[in-house]
Write a protein that binds this DNA or RNA. Structure first.
Length: 467
RNA sequence: GCUCCCAUCGUCUAGUGGCCUAGGACACCACCCUCUCAAGGUGGCGGCACGGGUUCGAAUCCCGUUGGGAGUGCCA
């Protein structure tokens, strides 16, 4: 028995859709499990959607998801447009066998006829007119009588009465092949055994199966997985919804988190936790277990998954993953950045991060010449009756204490106790003086890392502003 | 309109006739921990769309209703 051949056949539309990502992942998981092959085919039949950089974008996105185009399990990319000759040959073969026929009606005429008769779609007008090819003539498939049964791995048995399927177009008036034809011919040509794709293709499937039959081949195993929807329960759309994989990547969503989350949409790993490594997914994933109903793509839950994966990283891995967010568009002057400082802070912020893009705002005060200014934070913390005294106490204490977080803390504690206050209160003005913000990494560790001179300078400067 | 698909907490799901007083996760709330914010811990809120069958027994099987969704192109 030959090893299974799965395929992923996106049309290049400029960015990579999260729904496509999930479909690709499903295919990839199956390929890994069964020792099969992942075939990438770019469906560029429509000439308007054809651009080399988009193809590269797809390959990059797949690579990010762990679908490595240099893997021996990976085949492609193939381009549908390159097979146009094959598609036409297949169509002509069908015509010669009487399984397809030419029709001279334009799309408008088809519509007009349907309206007239109260019917819908194409009515088979040219079925027996014996037309030959000609300018503007389209080749239509002669849908046979009877019933078409689609055996679907996730849906089960789905029946279609053939008389509800119109004689669809194979070749356009200009001779170019239509998607349905191209798709089937390519799948046959590439010896595809499993077609795993989104549910929106299910209504097309009987037509494709009919084509497989007519072309003399046994249909592949079908599997239609539910679509991803937005909060309104509508199919995710690039117009309204945030669907570009690249965008999530740019915001600091980890690939592992995205992969893990996407896999739990329509499916769940066994056990009490959904946070699982890819190896577990490969071992457990089965199409038969995939849910039948659409799943809401919940960005909040994605963020939660991301937080979990961020926390699972080793400190080294976290520092490594942070790099892109410390270099590009950052609030500080690049030459002020210090990798050693960041390495010391990293563990302190790792539990405080949702997406990696939140990192700069959490560490900026280390690399800015002066702490960021936030009027609200300032008035809120500096207007208390103990703020000035707290800063004075810190100035005095920090000048002489041993330089470690515990000692720094002891200085503030001494002041706090003497005033009968709480550390939670008194730390606020100090925090704003040093970091510019009311929230952030642990204060005393931050002061230790910032250094005695700079910390005291900031505290003194803040104290001066109060009067 | 027509064809097809679907229906368990707000959301993602577990559940394949008795183990279900329906389990977990996200979100939300409370408490604990605590130098802020997180993280972590503990607890709470909350669901089998409805109506009929079948069965000793239905979230699980069947039928209907209702409600969602997808498709309906000389797009892919």
């Amino acid at each position: 028995m030959d090893s299974p051949r799965y395929r992923f056949a996106p049309s290049p539309t400029g960015f990579f859709h999260v729904g496509g990502a999930r479909t690709a992942l499903y295919n990839w998981a199956l390929v890994q499990r069964t020792g099969g092959t992942f075939v990438l085919r770019i469906e560029d039949t429509d000439e308007s959607r054809n651009s080399p950089e988009w193809t590269q974008g797809i390959i990059d996105a797949l690579a990010w998801l762990g679908i490595d185009s240099s893997s021996p399990r990976f085949e492609g990319p193939y381009f549908q447009s390159a097979n146009a000759g094959l598609h036409r040959d297949a169509a002509m073969g069908l015509f010669e066998e009487g399984k397809a026929y030419w029709c001279d009606l334009t799309a408008e005429q088809v519509q007009a006829r349907a309206k007239e008769t109260g019917g819908q779609g194409y009515d088979g007008h040219s079925r027996d007119r014996g037309l030959g090819p000609g300018p503007g003539h389209v080749l239509r498939f002669r849908v046979p009588e009877g019933m078409t049964v689609v055996d679907d791995l996730v849906r089960g048995r789905v029946e279609f009465q053939n008389d509800t399927i119109e004689d669809f177009v194979l070749l356009r008036g200009n001779g170019s092949p239509m998607f349905l034809l191209a798709n089937v011919v390519d799948d046959i040509e590439m010896r595809i055994t499993h077609v795993v794709r989104a549910e929106e293709h299910l209504p097309n499937t009987p037509k494709q199966q009919l084509l497989w039959d007519a072309l003399g081949h046994a249909a592949p195993v079908w599997a239609h997985v539910p679509v991803l929807v937005n909060e309104q329960r509508k199919k995710l759309s690039k117009r309204r919804d945030k669907v570009a994989l690249e965008q999530y990547r740019a915001e600091g969503i980890l690939a592992d988190a995205m992969i893990n989350y996407l896999m739990t949409l329509g499916w769940a790993p066994a056990g009490d936790t959904e946070i699982v490594p890819w190896e577990r997914i490969v071992g457990d994933f089965r199409l038969e277990d995939v849910n039948h109903s659409p799943a809401f793509f919940d960005v909040k839950k994605l963020a939660a998954f991301n937080g979990d994966h961020v926390r699972m990283m080793s400190p080294e891995a976290f520092i490594e993953a942070s790099q892109p967010f410390l270099q590009g568009d950052v609030p500080w002057a690049h030459e002020r950045f210090d990798a050693g400082t960041f390495a010391r802070v990293a563990p302190l912020i790792q539990t405080r991060i949702g997406a990696l893009s939140e990192i700069p705002a959490m560490v900026d005060f280390f690399f800015l010449a002066d702490p960021p200014s936030d009027p609200d934070a300032w008035t809120k913390t500096m207007s208390s009756d103990f703020a000035a005294d707290a800063l004075d106490a810190m100035s005095a204490g920090l000048a002489a204490c041993p330089w470690d977080a515990e000692s720094v803390k002891a200085v503030l504690e001494a002041f706090t106790d003497a005033r009968g206050l709480k550390l939670g209160k008194t730390q606020a003005p100090v925090r704003v003086a040093v970091t510019g913000r009311t929230v952030g990494p642990p204060l005393f560790e931050s002061i230790q890392i910032l250094g005695r001179d700079e910390s005291m300078r900031r505290i003194t400067a803040a104290r001066a502003r109060i009067d």
